[in-house]
Design a protein around this nucleic acid. Sequence first.
DNA 1: CTAGGTGCCTGATTGC
DNA 2: TGCAATCAGGCACCTA
Length: 273
Amino acid sequence: MPELPEIETYARHLRPYLLGRRVSYLEALWPGSIAVPDAETLKALLTGQRIEAISRRGKFLSFSLDGGVLLIHLRMTGRFRVEAAASPRQPHDRVIMGLDDGRELRFNDTRKFGRFYFVPDAALVTANLGPEPLDETLTPAEFRERIRKRSGTVKPLLMNQTFLAGLGNIYTDEALFRARIHPLRKANTLTNEEITALFEAIRHVLQESIAYEGTSLDFVYTGGLREASAAYQSRLQVYGRAGEPCLRCGHILERIVVGGRGTHFCPQCQGDG
DNA sequence: CTAGGTGCCTGATTGC
DNA sequence: TGCAATCAGGCACCTA
């Protein structure tokens, strides 16, 4: 599923196609993908607008336009392609954004969970998000204080976007493994050393995945320029590897359910919950 | 604050 | 073999 590294990869790969382009039309093949405002209003508002900047906040991709900000959340299965307008569309294409160079940005989303938000100010959508894990202004000391105030289970806490923005199921499991912390541990029982290791692990897995252009195997086809490689798939240590040997100690990895999410870990390396 | 449930969706997996 | 029931999961929203 798309998490922080995948969205960051999209931002980097889409900039060469979209910066400076004007939106010539919008088609909402599945109007439910448009959260704010309604699809018809969005068509009228976006048409003719110039894309001035592309950025990321948590798992939101953000397009800065003349008259507002278009924020898109991919949820489970959202993907983007940039293709010639004349090329055939694909099953599950939900929103088509026509560009003034004869191409289209195509949002494809099998499960229809992804959402578009067009607002005057990005904060109207992102105000409740926690800090960016890769932002240098988030210090290890601040992260330690934030986590020590929490009594809940550490894995759901890390996935809570108001606590920290950008982690999903994959990178949470990977970070906990790297930090050797059991996913069922209570946040306020972690030692300073464990919290420091966790903070380092979160940054490491996110930065490494960005360098490898994400994990999802088939999430971006920006036809024309080089496609994103999604090579982090081959770097996963625990996610999706239940039943296979731990790459660190050889113990068989396990899968349990934590906070309703499939959770992969090494019972040897990551001790007791 | 924390935990648990429901709904949104459809392709893959499981069960008989 | 074939089809129905179940599962997966990010997030909003609700209840306790």
